[in-house]
Design a protein around this nucleic acid. Structure first.
Lengths: 323, 323
DNA sequence: CTGAAAGCGCTAACAC
DNA sequence: GTGTTAGCGCTTTCAG
């Protein structure tokens, strides 16, 4: 095969141990020798075999990430932010998706563990059924739950304060004189939908329609609200995807937004701004969430002992035309 | 640490060699022994160390993927499709992004190679400046270029036939009586923008505005076209993101689409349908592209010799309200 | 069909 | 500071 550390050491005229130390930037190597090693490595175009290093040192400098669906723009943004943060720490990202299937989730996590990831960033797909994966994973490596959270699992979670987000929306609508509202969300199979739904019920309490986090459901719900007779003054959607579907269908049926009804979303995905009208929504600070998640893991990997925490970042309301 | 293959072999009453063969599903093991090994592995909850296996066997069952930007919904969809295909073949995905920076691209690919990926799926960020990465990468492992392609690099590419896509759009517009058009695209720093621009010039030849593949540019271009005086009858956008920005800005300025001007996109990202009006665009069959890319790599890994190919999949026109 | 033994390329103990 | 040596846990000859 290619060049091995042995060759580099030979060329530099030192032992492999010294070469290894120099290459990995440890101190305890005479400056002169370090230079010689680095030079030899460059001259030989040495490519370290990180597999061998990982096998011996028991660290892969790789973090696994599991998301329900990569193409969901909200998750994709989170993946990007996590990857960016990992790059800064010279770690790599092993990415996999569960497709919202707890069984697949289990086997994907298993594959990540077989690959000896140092840590795991997980967006668990199910509020309850993901508990087993989380538990077995957390028994092996540091794990942080991102965005979504598993009921009854006592591990660190980093996400947004959903209740605060809904509160901001309700408050904002109230400030515009809107009191009669409806909530169009998703069946609470994950912690976000649960939290938003609970918050809405506690803070506003109009009628509630539950489906899934999809545009199609947003459209369907629009139809149902219209067919039910009197439209509410405000429609609080569980996320932006639903809200965009809602907006499209309302427009198609000639309902004016915000004149006839105000509509709000949640997440502030990139296309929220492009809705017609542009969407008033709750912004999740994804960069910050990802940074926090990676920071927590890095600290744990650096040997820091820390109890499980709930890191709830406050979202901000983005007021645009729709609400 | 945990259970090693040694323990499994001992429990099954066979040698580690036999255990290894049974676990990896090789034939040449007596059925009875295979059962015993599998049973022992299950009972002990054996987790194979794929690092050690990879070091010895020189295969990681891991594929690296490099994209310019993960959060771009078009690339995210591609990433998802590639990951799905890899899962089917029990391979993992090591994902990284270049942020459209050829230097970062270089170092990211290097990191992937250090991790001994079996193969690489690359969306090179630059039409010309990415040639060096591609060459060095291709010298080490099978590589396929996905979507974008590097000038003068003779490696396999899987993508869409951009010219055919533009032709479909131009033809469609012509069928609606639209002859005076403009093209709003991106500076041709990558092969797609180049190809679409060239195709437009060859097939239609109205005025051309070049920026980048962003909503903001779409908005700005809308302004420029309006300020230039007479609006064309049709605006062919280089991708959907530009088109959505265009649509938003035209609406803001009171220009009606498609009555006053027809607008088309390219890619058919998920939100194309949600534009107001919904966007007529060219659909890229991303599932198929990803499947093809992974298929090509798998074949190469299986030892199949094949010359570099250009696999151009025909896109389809999706006619919606805007055009 | 099975087992013994030799490494894959590196890092970490342990001596010096 | 530096070198020697012993593995990390697995797969793969090579004999039998």
């Amino acid at each position: 095969m290619g060049i091995r550390i042995h060759d580099v050491a030979a060329r530099a005229g030192v032992s492999v141990a010294t070469a290894s130390r120099a290459l990995s930037g440890q101190r305890g190597v005479r400056a002169e020798n370090r230079e010689k090693v680095l030079l030899a490595a460059r001259e030989l175009d040495y490519e370290p075999n990180s597999l061998a290093a990982a096998l011996r040192s028991r660290t892969t400098h790789t973090v696994g990430m599991l998301v329900p669906r990569i193409s969901n723009p909200f998750f994709a943004t989170l993946v990007e932010a996590v990857e960016n943060r990992l790059q800064l720490g010279r770690r790599s990202l092993l990415l996999t998706s569960s497709h919202y299937d707890p069984e697949a989730e289990q086997s994907q996590v298993r594959a990540l563990l077989d690959r000896r990831v140092d840590a795991l960033v997980m967006i668990p797909c199910h509020r309850e059924r993901s508990i087993e994966v989380m538990t077995t994973a957390a028994a092996r490596v540091p794990v942080v739950q991102l965005d979504l959270r598993v009921n009854g699992f006592a591990g660190t979670w980093v996400g947004v304060d959903g209740e605060a987000g809904i509160a901001a929306v309700v408050h904002h609508l109230a400030g515009r004189g809107v009191t009669r509202t409806a909530f169009v969300g998703a069946e609470p199979t994950d912690s976000s939908s649960q939290e938003r739904l609970d918050a809405y019920r506690r803070l506003a309490g109009g009628s509630v329609l539950l489906g899934d986090f999809s545009r199609d459901w947003g459209k369907e719900a629009a139809g149902r609200l219209l067919e039910a007779g009197s439209l509410p003054e405000g429609i609080v959607c569980g996320n932006d995807t639903i809200a965009l579907g809602m907006l499209a269908e309302l427009a198609r049926r000639g309902v004016r937004v915000p004149e006839d009804v105000r509509v709000t979303g949640f997440d502030d995905i990139p296309y929220a701004e492009l809705g017609q009208p542009s969407l008033t929504t709750v912004r999740q600070p994804q960069e910050q969430m990802a940074a926090e998640a990676v920071r927590v893991l890095a600290a744990r990997l650096a040997g820091e002992e820390a109890p499980a925490q709930r890191i709830a970042i406050s979202p901000s309301l983005v007021v645009r035309a729709s609400g």
